[in-house]
Amino acid sequence: MNPFFFGHSNHPLYGVYHPPSALPHKKEAILLCPPFGQEYMRSHRAYRQLTLLLNKKGFPVLRFDYRGTGDSFGELEDTTVNDWLEDITIAVEELKQTAQVDNISIVGLRLGGLLASAASADLQINRLVLWDTLASGKDYQEDLNQEIAKFPNSLGKFIDQNGTLHFNGFALSKNQLQDLSKFDLYKKPPRANQIIQISSSENPAEQKMKLDWAGKNNFSYQLTPAPGDWNFVDDFGGILLPHEIIQEIVRLFDNQGQDAK
């Protein structure tokens, strides 16, 4: 594993490159696009586990943080959603150079899947794995609004007078929310040779996406009930690792995605 900063010197991104740990080395490299906020914190270990298993199958992998998040440059409030799309493009280029391959696939979890889908329009992506991905930015905002409504007196979940949405220690500005609301996978599906939607539960939005895309030759849907909820933390700091879904993603890559139904 090689932690490093890459990209533009004015706004470097933090990433961790994991070279393949087993032979034969695959000619396909995988970029992991993280979710946002506490979901990013809680899924960090699951992403690392996924990375190590993909490495054992010969895949090079890059994990990274978007601008204004994690260890990457900048403050969140100064960052735009377009910056994040640009960051995905920068990360794809970095991965191509580092792994010495042209064939790039992406795994995106939750908001990471939505951003990867939006960025895919300008990229050549082989396989795009959408893990519990949001169908639209509006869906995401509705999810957050519903959670905020459950805790009207919370100091950690609220919308301030500027329209900035604060959720468990992370904030999305009014502009960021407006930009995200333009993303809608129903109206504008992602562009990739293969699109694999993998869900840990059957929720209405993902079901609708599955039905909408059912006729597409390059689309497959995989329901993998994952009792290991990647977003779970117990009172003692224990976390659940979604072993089943991690193994399923590895299997999808290792089997060239042929088994996904």
Partner: peptide
């Protein structure tokens, strides 16, 4: 114990229990 929704086989406890 845990609620039914939590599968303890997938629980990875912190290396440090305070």
């Amino acid at each position: 114990g845990f609620s039914e929704s939590v599968d303890i086989n997938n629980l990875e406890t912190a290396s440090y229990v305070r």
